[in-house]
Design a protein around this nucleic acid. Structure first.
Length: 270
DNA sequence: ACTGGCACCTGGGCGC
DNA sequence: TGCGCCCAGGTGCCAG
């Protein structure tokens, strides 16, 4: 479930339970994620106080006094707080036990996620080349316009490129392009400045809304799951191929772009 | 430098 | 009920 709003919702949910807490031990039941979890993670982290929980793109940065745990939820990952010692089910790969008696539990059936250790996370090779955060002033339509000139790639995979802007996954790219009235198949280099200004505004609006929704559905992160920022009935295009457009009634079409399903309205999006 | 395609892995849903 | 197939919210890496 993790697109950027879900990762940010996770961050907000777990941070109050982690910040200021000391780690008592780390239990790794299965280290086979996208990259192996470092064997010495327990040694590195145990005994340290957690200073802060940050996010960069879809990476969660759990900063200790010395060093930072970099975690990515992949396609199926989840972080939540449980009572320390709670028996682990299948796919519950890691527990980070705290002196409070709670444990941060990492679950990931597909194991596309990551849990890495770094002394300098922002210069880590996975983070160093990332584009700007979508909800900051470093990202705007002007950037999309400039970065797209001369590009033949379709506009949808273009806005999903982490070097252009981070945090725009398949759901939110689909929805933002619908809201901006841009055909996702259009060449990135052929989209006008004015339309990119609109697209950037819609990306910001939709991501901010989804985070807000995540925040409102989030009561307590203990024992629960991360709630999606979006509800099915709020989606205009994503997952609605073959169904009528909510704006004009035209049947929505589905194509593959960059190996990912892309739904659009042939009348509303040009 | 770009672009498209593949890979990683498990589970759920569908048609037969 | 079982089996095979296709699909899935991400993203690093490869070849052309």
């Amino acid at each position: 479930m993790p697109e950027l709003p879900e990762v940010e919702t996770t961050r907000r949910g777990i941070a109050p339970h982690l910040e200021g807490q000391r780690v008592s031990r780390v239990i790794v039941r299965d280290s086979r994620l996208r990259w192996p979890i470092p064997e010495d993670l327990d040694v590195r982290l145990s005994g340290q106080r957690i200073v802060q929980v940050d996010r960069r793109a879809k990476y969660l940065l759990i900063q200790a006094e010395v060093g930072t745990l970099i975690s990515h939820l992949g396609m199926s990952g989840n972080l939540r707080l449980v009572e320390a010692g709670l028996p682990a089910l299948k796919h519950e790969h890691v527990d980070i036990e705290l002196e409070s008696g709670l444990a941060l539990r990492y679950t990931d059936p597909r194991r596309f996620g990551a849990m890495l250790w770094s002394l300098d996370p922002h210069n880590h090779e996975l983070l160093i080349r990332l584009g700007p955060e979508p909800l900051t002033d470093l990202f705007d339509g002007e950037r999309l316009y400039e970065r797209s000139r001369g590009k033949s790639i379709a506009v949808k995979p273009f806005v999903m490129d982490n070097a252009v802007v981070v945090g725009v996954g398949n759901i939110y790219a689909t929805e933002a392009l619908f809201a901006a009235g841009i055909d996702p198949r259009r060449e990135a280099g052929s989209v006008s400045r004015a339309r990119y200004l609109k697209l950037a505004i819609e990306i910001k609006r939709i991501l901010a809304y989804a985070i807000e929704r995540g925040g409102t559905t989030l009561r307590d992160f203990i024992g629960g799951d991360g709630k999606p920022g979006y509800f099915q009935q709020e989606l205009f295009a994503y997952g609605r191929g073959g169904q009528p457009c909510k704006v004009c009634g035209t049947t929505l079409r589905e194509v593959k772009l960059g190996q990912r399903a892309s739904v659009y309205c042939p009348k509303c999006q040009r």
